[in-house]
Design a protein around this nucleic acid. Structure first.
Lengths: 196, 196
DNA sequence: CCTACCGATCGGTAGG
DNA sequence: CCTACCGATCGGTAGG
């Protein structure tokens, strides 16, 4: 799926995005100045405007690139026509892995979208709603097929999405368990419950 | 448990805190100006300094008051000496209700603590770690007593806390289910799982 | 609780 | 990619 691009330019943009995501996560979008971002990159603030036309464009790229990745994944899962339990398991695993691997991007996408211009906030929240609705359909189908308990499908989706998105609490502290153990535990917990 | 206070003064402070929590949630701490907060309250910005010595003090009150409420609750549960399943269920229910009732305060406490002065960030995160550790102990005991499955206790706690804290996604949208149904569904999902 | 105001910092532009 | 710089806005103070 690799695309051909002018490598130098591309990697510089990516470098800026990665550093911006880090700073936006740690201090928030508003509290991160273009000067601070530039300093982290070893350049002066006005030079950033050769790569992005505004501070907000950086945020937009972070949010929508990340959203695309999740959207593409759920679409791939849906056309796979697997049974609902497996699709749900795969989605949970994907969320956990992505969160652990690209924490800054996922965190910023999850929280700093508030600072997008209002038209894009609408677009962004719409995409998330569509994503949720796709998950709701999967749970509904699983209930109809007898794979899942009878539950409001929307609460199940909310619980699952909350649980995987909230991994931010864990990330970047001293980790008390291995990532693979955590991933398996979360899948088991959300599918089979904690009670014996 | 009501305490005696100078009512007029108290309710003005509370009014400011409530409005500040709302704005901090919607726009973030840094992007909320004292002028904007004052305007919402129908006063001028400098008048706010008759009630709080700084913008940051407002944030501190929001974060630590909220933390106290959760800490007091878990301590009450622990001394109740109930069985582990019921304690965990009660904690989940408390989180869900508190999130739905005082969304702005809980959301701001969960995310805007980053903007506390660094000494208080340390204090705050310590309190959260202590809270987590208390939950871990409850799960460990439940496993030892055979109430819960064998699982890394810390992953279970992380999944539960993530799930209940992430309810922010739901709040304030058009609600597709009743709050009580949601609360029961979350408890059942987290304790008994989704699979049939 | 207000008016008047300050020093600092911000996002962004001009021009090279 | 840099220097020089602008207008706007910020948190907060003085003084009443």
């Amino acid at each position: 799926m690799a695309r051909i691009k002018p490598t130098g330019n591309f990697s510089k943009q990516e470098l800026i995005l990665a550093k911006a995501a880090l700073l936006f996560r740690k201090s928030g979008y508003t509290a991160t100045s273009m000067r601070a971002l530039a300093e982290e990159l070893g350049i002066e603030a006005p030079s950033l405007y050769n790569h992005f036309s505004s501070k907000n464009e950086i945020l937009q790229k972070i949010c929508f690139n990340t959203a695309d990745i999740f959207n593409n994944n759920i679409n791939r899962e849906i056309i796979s026509k697997e049974n609902c339990s497996l699709i749900l398991e795969n989605l949970i695993r994907f969320h956990v892995r992505k969160m652990l691997k690209d924490f800054d991007f996922v965190y910023v996408s999850d929280h700093e979208w508030r600072h997008l211009p209002s038209q894009l906030v609408t677009d962004y929240l719409n995409q998330r709603k569509i994503y949720e609705d796709k998950m709701v359909k999967i749970v509904e189908k699983g209930i109809a097929k007898g794979e899942f308990k009878k539950i409001y499908p929307y609460s199940a989706v909310l619980t699952i999405l909350s649980a995987v998105r909230g991994l931010e609490t864990w990330q970047k502290r001293k980790r008390r368990i291995f990532e693979t153990d955590l991933e398996n535990d979360i899948v088991n917990h959300l599918l089979y419950g904690l009670k014996k």
